[in-house]
Structures are given as structure tokens and as C-alpha cells.
Design a protein around this nucleic acid. Structure first.
Lengths: 316, 316
DNA sequence: TTGTATGCGTTATCAA
DNA sequence: TTGATAACGCATACAA
């Protein structure tokens, strides 16, 4: 018991004893046994994090924001990816709960219905990130994507554009993208024609979806990409087909990734506070596991970035 | 005890009892307590994985390859990133060992010296991936990057190029890249001039390092990028400065990422078996944890991809 | 300041 | 086939 106290730096151990214990521990190469600690404390100091994918800088950014906080607290993270698949997310959650994690972070607010009942009553702090809704499972840090889509489309509409198109992946894959699309339709007060491609690579999605959108024959004066990569893929398509941006058509991305810094044109886009979301989510979990009862629900804003792929002029 | 047996599907429980137990378990929403299991078994069914970064598709690919194997075995993965920093990797390893993991995966073969002594005698299966060396800590699945650099440069040399340059990040960051550079120098039998940039974004590294390399004033007829992204950044630089690829200068990448599929030119590069490395590493750990004594050491090969950024002709 | 008793949930071992 | 006992390493509660 004295050893336990000494090694944890708890008051009430004489200096003599403490140094003696520390010396012996070092000599013995003593390592605490975290599974045993987790058992007695009924919680493990592990935090589970689920992303749709890690082939997307957006999620890597959020992970980085979280890890900076968790590492300070000596919390290890069990990371998983769901491939935008709710049952895969559920299966992971089921396995994870058996580890008695100190918290869970889920991407988005759309989950398998069993997930809620699984988590109910466990007392595990849960943060849903990236997306935002008023009635989270437990806590929430993210954007209202519909509002964000509305805000972005309003800016674009104010630039004089009237015939928007949207390009992205098939429906029922990325609920956030569809929410943004709804917001855009709201801003333009009309249905928005879409081009969609099921490719895995986002550049390729942009290239192919752009082709599909324009094949539709409808007049389009501005194209909204699901994200920056998709928009850039479309940019490649337009270049190849001698369609000049922004003279012939405007092009808009989403996320504001540094990735595109060096590319030939700066993209008009919306910068999302990804690292900040991660950091805030992690802090919410840490606070909870330290006994703070208040649940966190934060709706953050994205920032409009005017690049060179939309016109600046503003006419009626 | 009977419950434990029944739930684990172990022989010697009557059908009656088993169904009865399963019913009650379901009704009680019973979940096994993995920390307790880990304690009694002195090993946790967790595997730790350390990458330099996750902002690089290469590592996301290896992670995917591993996860497919680990998930089949109900093994959870504790993922961490070291930022190419050995002491950060060491600190993570020290925390991880306290979890009594079923295995550890480390990227590369260059580690803090204390790491070896930390792991010695713990009996934890360790696989070093991506890089390859003859005397791993325990097991090894990867490429010999010097050999691979040699192989790539030999192909390029055979295409008639004589004045190579290399662009990448500063020295002492990525040991694999430097090993490839050594192999290239060997193939060309000369020092290779380099351009380097400390930027975080790989495209930007390519753009800036290319500028630096060409500023050097030496005659360069082919540029080797540290990886595909870096090469593509250089491609942007060359385009901007009206230097035509491959007429004026050849351009070579490394990794063969699908990312660049849609880009205007297919890059000459070397395709690395990333998912395969991950899968093999994971299988090695699973085998070990099941009692197989044989340590694994696999040296894989990369595949030369001839694109449109180097000339095809072959002259003396 | 130091130490003893107890219990966390699981599984191996042995007994019935 | 079923169950009792002990042990894993730690931390809480209590005693000296």
C-alpha cells in the first residue's frame, strides 16, 4: 500500500520511504498494471474514437486535436473506422464497451438505433463530433451542416450566381454532405441538380461527378463540391474540357484544407474548425471523467473563404 | 464458473444450462469485463500501433491492412503518432506496455535506444514495419529502402538519365527517404544534389524543394521526389515555370498512390505494398499470440511503374 | 506514517 | 456436468 501511494505521488509517505521505493521500482523495472487498475476503478482510462475513414485529412485533423488533450491526461485512444457504415460502428461500440472506456467519441449524429440502448445506463461519456444536433446521445461538438450549407450558398448567391449544381458521393453515404445540400437548396430556394460518383478517391469523385452533372444538360453557373478534394477533381475535369473557372462556371469546395495551398488557384470554400472540434470533444470527456456533471453541447461555425474560383462581382 | 464456460462456448456445459445462461445474460445485458480478463491472463488483447503521422495515405493504408486482420480476432488497436520523433515514440511505448498489450507495431527500424531495453524480456511480440533490417527488435515486415532506391534509380538510369536530383524534407526526419537516397546515389555512382523544405504539407515540400534544387544551378535531368505528393508539388512548380515534363526534366515519385489517378499525368513511381505489409504484420502478431514461436522477417519488393513523367527511350 | 483486510471480474484448477 | 477456491494487481477503507 505504501508503494502504491509513493508511486502515485500521494501525500502521507515520508521522503525517505518514497526515495527508497522509487529506487527499488526503477531497479525492478516496475510497470504499473493498467488492466488491474482499470478493474478496480471500473473504468479504464481508454477512450474509443470512431471515424468514418482515416483517408481524409478532416478526420486526421480532429484526431490530432483530441490526441493533444488525451496525451496530457495519459489517456490512450482506441481508434476505429466505420467506412460510413452504421452497423460497423455499432459492432465496434459493442466490443469497445467491454473495455469499460473512460469515454467514447463518435463521428456524426446518425447511428444504428441499438447504439443508444447499448450506451444507455453505462454512464460512459459520449461525444458526437463534426455534426451537431439539439438532442445528442450525451454530448455534442460540431457544426450544423444544414445551416453551414445555407450560409455558404447564401454567400455564393450574393455573388450573383443563380444556377447551382452539387457534386459528391452517392446519397445515403455521408449524411453531413446531404445536410449541407439541403441548406444550399434552402438558400437558393430550389432543388439543386446533382452529379454523383461512387469512386473511393475523392479527386476521382469530383472528376466523374462533374462530368455527370454537366451531362445533365441543365444550365449550371456554380458547382459546389462535397469537399475541397471533390472540388479540385472537378477543377481538373473543367480544365481538361476547356471550361474556364470562374469565367464559365464558379467552383466551391468545403473544409478549407491546407492541402491545396500549392495548387494553382485558391479555392473558394468554407474553413471548418477541425482541430478545435477534436480538442473540445476531448476536453468534454476529460471533464466528465473528473466528475463534472454538465454535459457539453457546442455548435461551432465555419468561416467563408473567398478564393479565385468564384467571381467577386455582385450584381442583381 | 459455469457461466464463464457457457458464454465462452466451452465444452462441458449441458444444452439446458447453456440456453438458460444465455437468456439471462441477454436479459441482464451482460458484457464481459475485458480489463478483468486482461488481468488474469496477464495480456490484454490490445495491440499498440505507432505511425509517424496519419496525414499520409501510406500509413492509413498499412493501418487498414492491419485492422482487417485484428478485427477478425476481436483485437482492439491503440494507435498513436510520433511525428517522426523518437522520444515521442518511446514515451508512447512506455505508457503502452503498462497495458500489457498482445503486441506492438512500430514504423521503421530507427528507435530510441531505451526502447529495446524497455521491450526486452516483456515477451511482447513486436513487429517493425515499412522499413526492413536484418536484425529487428523482434520481427520485421517491410522494404529495404536502400535497395528499393537503388532499383528505382537503376530503371531511371536505364532510361538514359544522367543528372539526378532529389527533393524532400530536411535530413534526420525520415530515415527511409534517406536510405532510398543512398540507394539512388549508389545506382548513379555519384552524390545526388538535393533540395529540401521543412513545410508540413507534402505538396508544398515538393514545390519549395524543387525551387531550391534548381536554384543550385547544377544541371539536373531527372528529379526524384521523396514521395508522390512531393513529386506532384514539384510538377506544379515546373508547370508554373514553363519547364516541360518530361522533355526538359524527368520526374519520379514514390509509393504509387491512387490519389493521383485523376491528375493530368501519370507519374513514374514505385508502387509499395502497403496494405499487404499491414496485413502480414498483423498476422505475425496474431500467430505469436497464439503460441507460434517462429519470428517473422519479410523483405517485400516494390513495383516499378512507368508513367508519363519520364521518357521511355533508352539510349547510351 | 505505515500497514492490513477486502473486493473488483475473470479464469485455471481441483473437488463433488 | 457443475461448482468451490484461489489468484491476478490494484486501490479503498480502516487500523495501528
Amino acid at each position: 500500500m505504501t508503494v502504491s501511494r509513493a508511486l502515485r505521488g500521494i501525500e502521507g509517505v515520508s521522503e525517505t520511504k518514497r526515495t527508497e521505493i522509487e529506487a527499488i521500482a526503477k531497479q525492478l523495472k516496475y510497470l504499473p498494471n493498467l488492466p488491474a487498475k482499470a478493474m478496480v476503478e471500473a473504468s479504464s482510462g481508454l477512450v474509443g474514437i470512431s471515424f468514418p475513414t482515416l483517408f481524409n485529412e478532416v478526420f486526421a485533423d480532429m484526431l490530432l486535436g483530441m490526441r493533444r488533450v488525451f496525451e496530457d491526461q495519459a489517456i490512450a485512444t482506441i481508434v476505429s473506422t466505420s467506412d460510413y457504415n452504421q452497423s460497423q460502428e455499432l459492432a465496434w461500440a459493442q466490443r469497445l464497451v467491454a473495455w469499460r472506456p473512460a469515454g467514447m467519441v463518435l463521428t456524426g449524429c446518425d447511428h444504428a438505433s441499438e447504439l443508444t440502448s447499448l450506451l444507455a445506463g453505462t454512464g460512459i461519456p459520449v461525444v458526437e463530433i463534426w455534426d451537431w444536433r439539439s438532442d445528442p446521445i450525451d454530448m455534442c461538438v460540431g457544426l450544423d451542416h444544414q445551416e453551414t450549407g445555407y450560409a455558404l450558398a447564401s454567400k455564393i448567391k450574393a455573388s450573383g450566381y443563380r444556377y447551382p449544381g452539387f457534386i459528391g458521393c452517392p446519397e445515403n453515404i455521408d449524411p453531413r454532405a446531404e445536410a449541407r445540400l439541403r441548406g444550399m437548396a434552402e438558400a437558393f430556394d430550389s432543388e439543386i441538380p446533382t452529379g454523383r460518383s461512387p469512386s473511393r478517391n475523392a479527386f476521382q469523385v469530383g472528376f466523374e461527378a462533374c462530368a455527370e452533372l454537366l451531362k445533365g444538360g441543365r444550365h449550371i453557373d456554380v458547382i459546389f463540391g462535397l469537399n475541397d478534394h471533390v472540388a479540385y477533381g472537378a477543377w481538373m475535369y473543367l480544365q481538361t474540357h476547356d471550361i474556364v473557372v470562374p469565367q464559365d462556371v464558379g467552383l466551391v469546395g468545403f473544409n478549407g484544407l491546407g492541402l491545396l495551398n500549392v495548387l494553382p488557384v485558391e479555392l473558394t470554400t468554407m474553413r471548418t474548425p477541425r482541430e478545435r472540434i477534436g480538442a473540445l470533444a476531448a476536453k468534454a470527456i476529460v471533464a466528465r471523467s473528473k466528475g463534472v456533471k454538465t454535459p457539453v453541447s457546442l455548435k461551432l461555425k465555419a468561416e467563408y473563404i473567398l478564393g479565385q474560383t468564384t467571381r467577386r462581382a455582385c450584381w442583381p
